[in-house]
Simulated assay, not measured.
Amino acid sequence: MHLNCLLFIFSFIRLSGAQDVTTVRQISVQRGQSVVIPCLYNQKYTSSYKYLSAGYVWLLSDYVDFSDQRCHHKTVFVSDDTEGHIFTVRMDDVQESGSYWCAIHIPSAFDKRAGFFLDVTADSPRLHVTSQTVMGSENGSVTITCYHQGVQYGVKWCKFGGQCITGASGTLDGASVEIRHGLRNMTVSMSRLKKKNTGWYCCSTEDLQMPVHITVSQKKSRSAEGQQSPVTTATGQSSPRKRTAILFLLPVIFEILLLIVIYLALKLASICKTRFFPSVNEAEDGHYVTMHREQSSRSNGCSAAEEVYENMAGLKTNSEIPASGHKSISPAVVKKSDLPKAPVREPDYVNIMKT
């Protein structure tokens, strides 16, 4: 039961937001080459920040580059086309395969994202094109050749995030499409182009996609061939940071704050008790002083009894002196009322002398 719940939560976290962002599933690139990955998003996120993160698990992924330039990577650049509702990720000099995420930052909620896998090969990629940027003019035509490794009739030409042409011909957004399959390539011809045909398309198989951007201008000219890709570049060094799943850390943060509050409350209570209420130790100390004083008063009584004993002993000694040679001296009579008051219980050594 618990395992099923965990699987459900993991699936929800992994799939949540995927319907708001669309990108390729897997793309193959030769080591050291460059590639551009488009990420289509819902228009309601036009003003949100877009970014790329790296890692197989979304919650543990690292930030790589942001569209608002808060974080830069020296070989990765993120550019946002707010009019077309698509942001692109350009990766130069790729070296290693890995999982990546096209993501949109959503304050106080889960970010919207879509993952893709970058397959870096030492030899020719399994699916690739000569150039990812193609220029055309209105009422003109363009030709794109997709190279593959013998996957005949399994390669399709698609509008990115939209319709695909599965047969030898068809139409996409009003433009005529003709497809010719070769042994290791697929040639796509698009004619009767319109301005609205500007956008991202892709060669697609079951597991691989290769995006191609087509720009349709008002008239065809040689100068158009020198135009830059719609992907803007930026410079800067990277500073990858570990992603902090704040929402999942909130319970831990709350517990820490609760412990701090409890500690401070106990500390405050201890200070108030010490300052405004007598402590138990002080009461015990007062009781000890009282007993010590009573014991001291008894000791004083014993001292008085010793003085009486010494006086009586001195009298007895004088009475035993022989009368010859000395003048008889009558012992002084000591009245009981003249004796100092002694405690009710007389010391033991006085009783012994009396016996």
Rank of each mutant, 00 (worst) to 15 (best):
S324Q: 06
G55Y: 05
C39N: 08
K219A: 15
K327D: 00
V76S: 08
T198K: 08
D81I: 05
R293P: 03
T46W: 01
L60D: 12
L52K: 07
V151W: 07
S217Q: 08
L172H: 01
Q163T: 00
A265Q: 13
T198M: 03
A245P: 07
T171F: 03
G314S: 05
D62T: 12
R70M: 09
S324I: 00
S279H: 06
A54V: 06
L118E: 05
S204E: 14
Q132L: 05
V212W: 09
W58D: 10
T46N: 09
H292V: 04
I260F: 09
P322A: 00
C272P: 01
S299L: 07
T198Y: 09
Y51M: 13
F10Q: 14
K194I: 09
T198I: 11
V36S: 06
Q33K: 13
D81L: 04
K267C: 05
Q218Y: 14
Q26L: 13
L264M: 15
I165G: 01
T143L: 01
Q295S: 02
Q26V: 00
A18N: 14
H105K: 10
Q19F: 11
V280A: 15
V94S: 02
K194Y: 04
T130Q: 11
V35N: 06
L15W: 13
N185W: 10
T166G: 00
K195S: 15
M312N: 02
L258Q: 07
K354S: 14
M353F: 15
V129P: 07
N185V: 00
A305D: 03
S141N: 05
D111H: 13
G167H: 02
E284P: 00
M186T: 15
